[in-house]
């Protein structure tokens, strides 16, 4: 079929674009490294300067890989949520999952001082933060889901998500009054989003959790297609609706929660990227949208990270960049709305 051939060509083009952006992303920064040298050093040869090698493997490559994983996870969780909530405007940030994660992390960072030292250490470890963050996003996701079963109106669900954001936001700001300046600073930096802070050990944890989340999503590809017809039709096609829902929720909160734990809340990527994939591939098949969303997610994050460094000596927070790009996309989607009510 010519359709699948077209898809193959698009995927090859996306793969090349991703590779190019990866090299560009690593070469770019306060110390520019020629792309040729980046390529050399990534393919196992040694770069011309030892300092370049050091920068690449200790700063640039971890950051680029983090960006790719963040792009993967947030975008896929957005894709899952848009289908699960029957809402083209759903996404981990808009529906308040990131806020839920923030709340979890805020409790851990600012609340740890109330605990005995040995417990505080467990809580403040990467695992403790991931757990709190995933739990936070899971709680919000389930709350939004429960509300959405009572309200069929797509826009109302978004408002509910907004309310949850305000609610968790208010608790977080209340918490800040009880925290030390040091804790507050730590939390504030976290909440601005930062891709460049992770050590290789943390990246491997993020990698494992992301892979689990993606595998869970892949296992429900067919059910996601059926969900496009709504719950009753999906059931009539032999889909176990409850199990599907649980697995999608689990995958979404693992992806959104773990990413938010490590790099802070990142806005709009989860909402906008699936739409980019839908626009380019012109299909509703989740098997194709899944891979398309993965590629576009990674590309978008690498690109945003690149933009965040364009201001010269200062590096802008990644969350600011994604919001500057993402918010207009939402408005555009609303204006262009086709059958979105």
């Amino acid at each position: 079929m010519s359709g699948s051939q077209k898809h193959t060509i698009t995927f090859i083009a996306l793969g090349l674009l991703l590779l190019f952006l990866l090299l560009l992303n690593i070469s770019f920064g306060q110390i520019a490294i020629p792309i040729k040298e980046v390529f050399k050093s990534l393919t196992g040869n040694t770069a011309s300067k030892e300092s370049w090698e050091y920068i690449i493997f200790n700063y640039r490559l971890p950051k680029a890989i983090t960006a790719i994983l963040v792009g993967f996870g947030l975008s896929i969780s957005g894709l899952l949520m848009q289908t699960l909530f029957r809402n083209p405007l759903a996404g981990p940030y808009v529906l308040g999952l990131s806020s839920g994660s923030s709340l979890g992390v805020a409790f851990v960072i600012m609340g740890a001082s109330f605990l005995p030292v040995y417990l505080a250490e467990i809580f403040l470890s990467p695992y403790g933060i991931i757990f709190a963050s995933c739990l936070g996003s899971l709680v919000v996701l389930i709350a939004v889901l429960l509300v959405s079963q009572r309200i069929r109106d797509t826009m109302a669900i978004l408002i509910v998500g907004l309310m949850f954001s305000s609610f968790t936001g208010a608790i977080v700001s209340s918490l800040t009054y009880f925290s030390t300046a040091e804790q507050l600073q730590k939390f504030t930096f976290w909440s601005m989003g930062n891709l460049g802070n992770l050590a290789w050990s943390q990246i491997s944890i993020l990698l494992i959790v992301t892979i689990i989340g993606l595998l869970l999503s892949i296992s429900k590809i067919k059910a996601l297609d059926a969900l496009l017809l709504g719950e009753s039709y999906a059931k009539s096609l032999g889909i176990n609706f409850n199990r599907t829902q649980i697995i999608i929720i689990l995958a979404t909160s693992l992806l959104a929660g773990s990413i938010t734990a490590f790099v802070g809340p990142i806005a709009f990527v989860g909402l906008a990227v699936p739409h980019l994939a839908k626009l380019i591939f012109q299909t509703s098949k989740h098997w194709i949208l899944f891979w398309g969303t993965l590629f576009f997610g990674a590309i978008t994050m690498l690109f945003c990270d690149l933009l965040s460094q364009l201001a010269g000596t200062v590096v802008l927070p990644i969350n600011a960049i994604t919001s500057i790009i993402g918010a207009p996309v939402i408005i555009w989607l609303l204006i262009r709305k086709r059958n979105y009510s």
């Binding site: 017809l229 709504g230 299909t283």
Partner: peptide
């Protein structure tokens, strides 16, 4: 069924 389909690009 009589119910409307959720919004999608199907």
């Amino acid at each position: 069924l009589t119910e409307k389909l959720p919004p999608s690009n199907l």
